[in-house]
């Protein structure tokens, strides 16, 4: 026949017959060639504060020109953006926005970074890659919020164009990834290590879901692994779960659980542990050396930023992050 192809972009590696669409819903085999259905067709275009991604150690207060197309490489039952991540491109509304128009939009709105986010950017890899090339040329930053479920070869090609990546580490067990997300943990851990090795600024987000991934031992193991493999300066965001999509039977994450996770991360050696999706002091950045407040946040907005050239103004300790655009 000769028309069967295998997509090698994500670890699912779909084998597609003619006219068959991959599990991500946006890549199709047509007569033996694989095509992207969503190149230049974002379903979401928005200017957000970079804290919303969340990036807490990248240009605090910066505006992020954020784009996403429909589709996802995973099928998490708790997806908070399932209306677009699980949608079909032929049934969704989209805009026509070529990579050069993305850059033009980012410059027009005074954004310092273009962020590939909301759904899983891996599914619009070609669009992201071409846009990232242009973004670099115009002196802006590229940042991505990803689940990290991508094969090594495409990741290594993309990473030199990326300045920052926020990886959703959804849990620390293969069982959770298999049962709840329809994927595997190992490729995500490998992606984290690769991003770190290739010099991309890394932040981790962990959505804490009651009864599914809130075991203190699992959180401790995850944090210890991050300290060893991504470094103690890697910020981690423990995000509050709200019952959406297929997990409406669970309650929102109790505040005590989020506090426990933050404390566990600190005890494991992570210097910057945050709590997200909830308004409280867990959103602020404190100096790990002297404990003084450095960046005060209210929701997605920076109330005050006391950092001086990336260092604590009190004890002069250097604070890891991307603090300027150069």
């Amino acid at each position: 026949m000769g028309t069967e192809v295998q997509c090698t972009l994500c670890p699912t590696e779909c084998e597609l017959e003619n006219h068959q669409v991959g599990g991500c819903k946006v890549r199709i085999n047509r007569d033996g060639t694989l095509y992207s259905l969503v190149y230049g067709k974002p379903c979401a275009v928005q200017v957000d504060p970079i804290e919303k991604k969340p990036f807490y150690h990248v240009l605090p207060g910066a505006k992020a020109f954020s784009i996403a197309t429909v589709g996802c490489v995973l099928g998490c039952k708790f997806c908070q953006n399932w209306q677009i991540s699980q949608a079909l491109p032929e049934e969704s509304e989209h805009r026509d926005l070529d990579p050069d128009e993305v850059v033009r939009g980012a410059l027009y709105y005074g954004c310092q970074t273009v962020t590939y986010t909301y759904t899983e950017p891996t599914v619009f890899y070609e669009y992201m890659y071409d846009t990232a090339l242009l973004v670099r040329k115009f002196g802006l930053l590229n940042s991505v919020h990803t689940c990290g479920y991508i094969n090594q070869e495409p990741l290594r090609e993309l990473a030199p164009l990326l300045n920052a990546a926020d990886v959703d580490l959804k849990a620390f067990t293969e069982d959770f990834y298999g049962r709840i997300c329809g994927g595997r943990l190992k490729p995500v851990l490998e992606a984290i290590v690769t991003l770190r090795e290739m010099g991309v600024w890394l932040e981790i987000t962990n959505l804490v879901i009651p009864t599914l991934n809130d075991d203190p031992k699992e959180i401790r193991d995850m944090c210890r692994w991050l300290v060893e493999n991504a470094g103690p300066d890697t910020p981690i965001h423990f995000s509050r779960f709200f019952p959406y999509y297929k997990l409406k039977n669970l309650p929102p994450t109790p505040i005590e659980t989020l506090n426990m996770a933050q404390q566990t991360a600190r005890e494991a050696g992570l210097r910057y542990a945050y709590i997200g999706n909830i308004r409280q002091s867990g959103e602020n950045t404190y100096c790990p050396s002297c404990g003084k407040l450095l960046i005060e946040r209210i929701g997605y907005f920076v109330k005050q930023n006391l950092l001086q050239e990336g260092a604590c103004p009190y004890c002069k300790s250097s604070i890891a992050g991307v603090w300027d655009q150069t």
């Binding site: 192809v5 295998q6 997509c7 090698t8 972009l9 890549r27 047509r30 060639t33 694989l34 095509y35 992207s36 259905l37 969503v38 190149y39 230049g40 067709k41 491109p89 032929e90 989209h94 890899y125 070609e126 669009y127 890659y129 094969n151 070869e153 495409p154």
Partner: peptide
């Protein structure tokens, strides 16, 4: 929809 030739396939 676009039909942009995708990368990373065989």
């Amino acid at each position: 929809l676009s039909l942009k030739e995708a990368r990373h396939w065989r």
